[in-house]
Design a binder for these strands. Structure first.
Lengths: 215, 215
DNA sequence: AAGGTTCGTGATAGGTTCTAACTAAATCTC
DNA sequence: GAGATTTAGTTAGAACCTATCACGAACCTT
């Protein structure tokens, strides 16, 4: 990931242990959620005693932060590969859904209930803005043809969040509601609020996507 | 709530202590989130020692379940009072947003990341379906005029979740997307994903509500 | 080979949930 | 009213957890 040639053996070992810790952590997160993550249990799984992990992560929050960062990067990768064939909102949406269903707790780690005191580090917001940029690129490529709304006009004056993206205000608007609408369905689906309702969430997702990409 | 006349003094005392425990629990949830809820700390606040609380709640999960049930009931109340002037989607949406912003952690307790092993009790699903019924009533009262979609036809055959609501499939569809779209915005807003983006989430919410109630 | 850095350990402090046994008080029954 | 029973709350303790500290052992550099 970063200058693999100039690594000393010690740094390589250290990085390898860090990723091994994170792998076990992901296992725990996937089965029991982030709130049930236990450094002690991870250490036991790895055959070493509790406090050893504190050489690699200062505390539990730092480990969770590392997981969040990795999750963001993974989503950005999924978006990038989905956009490699062209800027296509539908492809991004399906990539998002597949990525979310592949590991629901990973999605919820990013977009679910946050820890009240937690504040995301800068590199996370950087990756998040890259994700948004890919989505905005795809929205800008959609045919316009939709009447302008008052919110479009408002967004024209409040577009610094898009970090100088050249898209029109209507495209920004579309990007925002892509995000909020698809997240609304996915988060309710992953949280199990649709179970027992008898309809297929994939159909609802597809219907909303149709509406989103319609002129 | 249930035959207040036939209560013995003991039952009355018991109920009063239970609500006092829940009040302190809400205080903790509001400031630090549900995952940080500590029975020990509550007992200390109430001036009694830890294990005494287990006379009133079998374990931590049961207390959280009670909080979830109360939250659902509170939202149903808010919906009921918002609908007392007539079945109006906009009124319900604003009631929902006000209720969510009034205590973000209470909203996230219901609609946020669930505990993986947790399963909602029956009375919760009953209140949840009442909430959905109020929303569907309002959606049925909206003027139609929107072209039928394939998902409408699909919903016609998968409508048992609406518990025999007489609304048209188009109204059911509208109810569903009211839920998912508004939740999408609210959950991202409460989780802080809009902070620093420089636009007012209330405007986005209003714009989506406009789109939802438009013919 | 010597020295400094780093890794992993056990011990420890303080926190949590939750069980068990016991006391004291309130209530119910006779 | 007196005795029996139920109930509330206590302390003690087990089994976890996070996190810090001091120490010995391994390793890398010089």
């Amino acid at each position: 990931m970063a200058e693999a040639g100039t690594e000393t053996p010690r740094e390589r070992y250290r990085a390898q242990v860090r990723t091994e810790i994170k792998e076990h952590a992901w296992g725990q997160v996937a089965t029991a959620g982030a709130s049930a993550l236990s450094l002690n249990a991870i250490a036991k799984q790895m055959g070493m005693s509790g406090p050893a992990l504190y050489r690699y992560f200062a505390n539990r929050d730092e480990l969770i932060t590392a997981l969040i960062t990795d999750a963001y990067r993974s989503l950005a990768d999924a978006f990038r590969t989905a956009a490699v064939t062209g800027a296509d909102v539908a492809a991004l949406a399906h990539a998002l859904r597949a990525w979310a269903l592949d590991d629901p707790q990973r999605y919820l780690l990013i977009y679910g209930t946050p820890v009240p005191g937690y504040h995301a580090p800068d590199d996370v917001t950087l990756v998040a803005s890259e994700i948004m940029t890919i989505l905005l690129d795809a929205c800008a490529a959609l045919p316009p043809g939709r009447p302008a709304t008052p919110f479009d006009a408002y967004l024209e004056d409040h577009r610094q969040w898009a970090s100088d993206h050249p898209a029109s205000a209507a495209a920004l608007h579309r990007g925002l509601i892509c995000w909020t609408r698809l997240h609304g369905i996915l988060s309710l689906e992953l949280a199990g609020h649709f179970t027992g309702m008898g309809f297929d969430p994939a159909r609802l997702f597809a219907a909303e996507l149709d509406d989103l990409t319609a002129p």
